[in-house]
Design a protein around this nucleic acid. Structure first.
Lengths: 248, 248
DNA sequence: CTCGTCTTGCGAACAATGTACGCAAAGAGT
DNA sequence: ACTCTTTGCGTACATTGTTCGCAAGACGAG
């Protein structure tokens, strides 16, 4: 009994082994970072905040992560892990499989709109395992469709660029909407005079704006994405000649 | 502490009317910000730095710009001002005109790679005058090609999404390269073991990587961009029927 | 010339944030 | 029991966006 340090050494005075929570780990940190970003947005991601949510101090995170930049790379790849690109097992419908993968990628970006600026920062240079896995699956689909090796890579980049460009733009809009705290109706209403003014000298834009005015905005966005997706796939399919790669 | 009034008021003690430089203005601030970003990168853009370059204090900028966020919006639109989308005057070759506009947009993004994360942040919600003007010109080209109003907007978004997605990815790579201070050859060499390891379990990616190994990387990037651009335009042109919109 | 008023610039100061550093506590191996 | 390594963390510092109050011209009115 070391009666000099604690008056009554017992289970209750002992700091519970510091293991009340499953301790810190890179996986827990990244997972909690994603949750923090989803719930509070990109500007709420800072070391102290994240540490607090993990029941730890801010600087403890540096034992598992080199710094914020590396954390962001990990978070981006974690998000890529949610993308579902179909296996090439049923080799019949390569076009449908690619469309599904593209929609899955868009859905992920819209679920995590904070990823939009990070994509422009980390690009595809991340080399994360999840990104690599999705890329491998997608390029396999292109190879199975009949694209030769070099061109399959270009074709994949084309499709991914379209999806990321489109979804990034949507995500930026959604992020701004979320930061404003208003609903999409209120937002559009409050912005109407500005838009009217900006379109005063641009009749073609006004015309296009009016043409799709009336539907539920989310539906409009989805249709716009689907339209472009079909066009991109059309253009790619045309490279495969009249057979269209349907016979593999 | 103005404890030391000039003992002899004369031209030499008087601070030269503060107009040695043409004073501060929103235009000068934005232009200098672009130059700063080009020369020193995104992380060097802060108020004190920018103020110093303008021969002013950091907080003086707030008289002309609401804050850094607004400054970024202005800078992005300033960059959009460099994009050259052809007029619809010669209505013959809509496809060539759109390709030219697309290449001009890509060239702008590669000239200013720091814009990549900002695009994901500001998106197209910026409503800046230059962006509006380029959009108006581009949608005019689509209308002239034969697309009906609503579809012209979707078609334009498709093309822009592709270009932004592709160029953003390239820009992120170039930014990372610039930050590293190394040449592209050195960078690729130093990253080789990592890439090899990452591709160990991904034969299709390795295959594609090997297929385009050997050419000058910039040429490879340009060809990849050109490939996807043609595919996207193919897919869009197919919507116009057999006539291909060549007759307007 | 003098007196408000308005505009512009700016230094000081504050809050938020990323992160280096050194110390302490816990565990592992001998 | 002693030492070495790993992990957590409090302190502290540098950077940066931004606010605030003050001063110095610009300028029209009297």
């Amino acid at each position: 009994m070391p009666a000099d340090k604690p008056p009554v050494p017992s289970v209750w005075t002992r700091p519970r082994a510091t293991r009340e929570r499953p301790a810190l780990s890179r996986e827990r940190i990244v997972a909690e970072a994603v949750r923090l970003l989803d719930e509070e947005g990109a500007e709420a991601l800072n070391m102290r905040n994240l540490g607090t949510r993990l029941g730890a101090g801010a600087t403890s995170l540096y034992r598992h992560v080199a710094g914020k930049d590396e954390l962001i790379e990990l978070v981006v790849d974690e998000a890529y892990g949610e993308v579902r690109v179909p296996e090439a097992d049923p080799p019949g419908d390569w076009r449908g499989a690619l469309a599904e993968g593209a929609r899955s990628l868009r859905a992920m970006i819209l679920r995590h709109p904070w990823i939009a600026p990070m994509l422009g920062q980390a690009g595809l240079a991340t080399l994360g395992p999840n990104l690599m896995r999705q890329s491998e699956r997608m390029i396999t689909l292109f190879r199975a469709a009949g694209f030769p090796p070099g061109e399959a890579d270009q074709a994949m980049n084309t499709l991914i660029a379209y999806v990321i460009g489109m979804a990034t733009s949507e995500a930026a809009y959604l992020s701004m909407l979320a930061r404003s705290g208003r609903t999409e109706q209120e937002w559009a209403e409050s912005l109407r005079p500005v838009v009217e003014q900006a379109m005063r000298d641009h009749p073609r834009l006004r015309e296009a704006h009016a043409a799709q005015h009336g539907g539920d905005p989310e539906r409009v966005r989805e249709e716009g994405f689907g339209y472009g997706l079909e066009r991109v796939l059309d253009g790619l399919q045309a490279r495969l000649g009249p057979a269209g790669g349907s016979a593999g």
